[in-house]
Amino acid sequence: MSKASVFNWLFLAALMAGSWLYLADGKPFKVTGLFLASGLAIGALYALGGIGMVVLYRASGVLNFSSGAAGAAGAMTSWQLVQWGIWPPIAWLACIAVALLLTLAYGALIAPKLAWRETVVKAVATLGFALIILGFVSFIWIDDPRSLELPTDKIGVSMMGLRITLTRLIAFAAAVGISAGIWVFLDRTNIGLQMRAVANSRDLSALLGIPIRRVETIAWGISGLLAGFTGLMFANLIRLEPVVITFMVIPSVAAALAGRLNSLFLVLVGGLCMGVIENLLTLSPLLKSVRPIAPFVIAAVVLLWHQRGARLIFEGRD
């Protein structure tokens, strides 16, 4: 781990601990613990979204804004299947499958046409795909109050006088487990090695004979699976509304930026930190009303801090 990334790690952890000490001081844990638990679950969702983005970005240079829309399409499909009386586990799998298929379709059909363009163009193109998905999803499912239940919502675990649902625990555990799993995958497997090579230099990897398309397809697949899972969790924990889920990519981008689009571990810590601080700010009379701004401010601070002292560097790879 580089010095800069250790520093960022410490910065985020200190920020989280500092805001806990400052905001939760003198209040009963029964109340503040609720904010912490809620924040960790939301933060885990930001982190999951961010991790999906970073894995794909590193392998293909595409910052995928359409992952939220793919998740929204999956979640709505899942809701529809439950309405039709399909056995719920199939519906949940369908959510992940729909997001996976949509993401793979983009990766296979559209992304190659833009493979050699600037990263910003590739990112903007995924917006186009997001709009197409969002348009169809909002067309098929008109605005209506809906909710997506999971059996784990009803199962609670009591910890230190708090009741926390299993769904929130799963979201948290998944974020930690998935980032660890992907880290091991990238570090220990052959495909992971190739992925890191492509991330470093696409041109050189191509020269070395690395099957770039295959490596990229796997990255798109991981991104699609994560988009589906995150969409399902967003729909359950936050709200089942296509527009809301689609644009939850914006705080996910914030989490990805906290890891500088590079370090999975920092994305995880950054996302959790954003969720926790956002929720803890509710305890501050001054800042409670602007609490959702926390992810953006933290991301901007991390980004600008990283750029501190940097001179105007000349055009190169982003």
Binding site: S38, I42, R239, E278, T282, R291, P292
Partner: peptide, 10 residues
């Protein structure tokens, strides 16, 4: 804002 839980906790 997507998350209603924080308003409830407030």
């Amino acid at each position: 804002a997507p998350d209603v839980n924080s308003a409830l906790l407030e």
